[in-house]
């Protein structure tokens, strides 16, 4: 098998962009590629648990934590969000069109062995701790991502 590698940076926490990232990741994995997804800044919200244990945070970190979406079910659209109605409508259309939900795509990516790495620095900035994010992540810095990207033939920033 002709295995190559792809890296995807998910910077955005928008529902539609996260969906695109996970569709590409799953497609690449199905084609036999090694895939590494690097989650940073708003993209970390895609990995948040809907319910997480309480944490001591600074006032600003608490504000971030409270205002940012908790997990894939709470993300907004990059266009036509309509105060949260947009994503609900899009989910309905996706069901009608038999497109996998974002939650299913995340689960499939993990089954396929897509490596997910989270930027520790932006977690610190946003006040997100490891147990607020889904299990099975590596917590890394930019050097780890760059090392992965060096081995990859394709790198996307989403």
């Amino acid at each position: 098998m002709d295995t190559t590698k792809k890296t995807i940076i998910l910077f955005s926490g928008d529902f539609d962009k996260a969906l695109a990232a996970f569709i590409i990741a799953n497609g690449a994995a199905a084609m036999g590629d090694d895939v590494t997804m690097f989650f940073t800044f708003w993209g970390l919200n895609v990995l948040r648990k809907s319910v997480a244990p309480p944490h001591k945070k600074s006032f600003l970190q608490g504000m971030f934590g409270g205002m940012m979406p908790k997990g894939p079910g709470k993300l907004g659209l990059s266009k036509m969000n309509f105060a949260g109605i947009g994503p609900k409508l899009m989910r309905r259309v996706m069901r009608q069109q038999n497109v996998s939900s974002l939650e299913e795509l995340i689960a499939t990516a993990r089954e396929q062995g897509v490596k997910m790495i989270a930027c520790k620095m932006s977690m610190d900035v946003l006040g997100l701790s490891e147990d607020e994010l889904i299990d099975g992540l590596d917590y890394v810095g930019v050097a780890t991502y760059l090392g992965e990207a060096d081995e990859a033939g394709v790198n996307l920033f989403i």
Binding site: I23, N26, G27, A30, M31, G32, Q97, N98, V99, S100, T108, Q112
Partner: peptide, 13 residues
């Protein structure tokens, strides 16, 4: 049948 991108290639894999 009934699955959308990338369902069919996942199934093929």
């Amino acid at each position: 049948r009934g699955t959308s991108c990338p369902g069919p290639i996942l199934a093929a894999k």
